[in-house]
């Protein structure tokens, strides 16, 4: 497993009519804690108002010719599954595709993953991550104007061989739609938990423990548990030091390990909740104001839902 060190951020607007812009708020928060991770930056963004049979997919395909070739392979595989491509775009080192699809999502997702490196799949979720700062990624992918109800962000300091975008966060719950994770810490019973999930035929595409958390939670949700229940059991089941944020189609949540070895602070008022590694990220959202921030206590979790 690669070691990671990072800053995390998440925000949810409680009121659907907020004038705040999700993309710009997340950039602001991540810019505030970029010192925690200068190598790569990522965003998990949730689009508004999509139809039920639409799926958004994003792949790492490489740039230029390589990107076009990989996208062609992806589309060929999509047609085998009867997925009809509605939109497609090559941007940065990724391909963004929207399809009409109503088959078995897990089977489709694994098949996609075998063709190209999937960044995210969801009816609302779109994960954008690449090397560079929050502003660099914004320049490449136009994050700043993105409007939405909630999202996550992550900055990362890499220690692996090359700084590549696919090791950056957020992580998508491989095989499940619309679930994303940003995580600061290290899960020490990673392999035990992973083998347990693999025995049940779940696939993993990285050795990253954040992917494990995402799949773990997604599995709990798929079994009919609420997000709160999934987070509660994660504190018991996962060993190590962690502060993580999870997002779903309609909400966000956090969990913090019992040792509280990884920082996390939050601000909440009637309009929004914002959670980050450092207070500086929260302050940036309200320049010049003295914010009443608080720190989640060890071994706790909480969830928030967007207004429908």
């Amino acid at each position: 497993m690669t070691k990671r060190m990072c800053g995390i951020a998440g925000i949810l607007y409680k009121d659907g009519t907020t004038p705040r812009v999700l993309g710009s708020d997340l950039i602001t928060m991540l810019d505030g804690c970029q010192h925690r991770g200068p190598d790569s930056t990522g965003f998990a963004l949730y689009h508004e108002g999509t139809e039920n049979d639409r799926l958004r997919l994003r792949f790492f395909v490489g740039e230029g010719e390589e990107g076009a070739t990989t996208l062609a392979r992806v589309k060929a595989k999509m047609s085998e599954f009867g997925a009809e491509v509605i939109e497609e775009e090559l941007i940065g080192s990724t391909a963004r595709v929207m399809v009409r699809f109503d088959g078995d999502l897990q089977e489709f997702a694994y098949a996609m993953e075998h063709v190209a490196k999937v960044v995210s799949i969801g009816s609302r979720l779109d994960i954008v991550k690449d090397i560079g700062s929050a502003h660099d990624v914004d320049n490449g992918y136009q994050i700043a104007e993105f409007k939405g109800s909630h999202g996550l962000g992550h900055v990362r300091l890499a220690t692996e061989s090359d700084v590549t975008p696919d090791a950056s966060h957020p992580f998508w719950a491989t095989g499940f739609a619309d679930i994303a994770i940003v995580h600061n810490g290290q899960i020490t019973n990673y392999w035990k938990m992973r083998r347990r999930l693999e025995k049940r035929a779940f696939e993993f595409n990285t050795d990253n423990d954040s992917e494990l958390i995402a799949v773990y939670l997604a599995d709990k949700l798929a079994q009919g548990h609420t997000l709160s229940e999934a987070l509660e059991s994660s504190i018991d089941d996962l060993d190590g030091t962690f502060s993580f944020l999870v997002s779903t189609q309609d909400g966000i949540g956090y969990a913090k390990d019992r040792l509280a070895a990884k920082p996390m602070v939050m601000y909440e008022d009637g309009d929004l909740v914002a959670i980050a590694s450092e207070v500086v990220s929260l302050n940036r959202l309200f320049p010049g104001e003295a914010l009443a921030t608080s720190e989640p206590t060890p071994g706790t979790y909480r969830t928030w839902r967007r207004s429908t």
Partner: peptide, 9 residues
């Protein structure tokens, strides 16, 4: 210092 990110600080 509980991680490399704390160590930077």
């Amino acid at each position: 210092v509980l991680g490399a990110d704390d160590l930077v600080i």
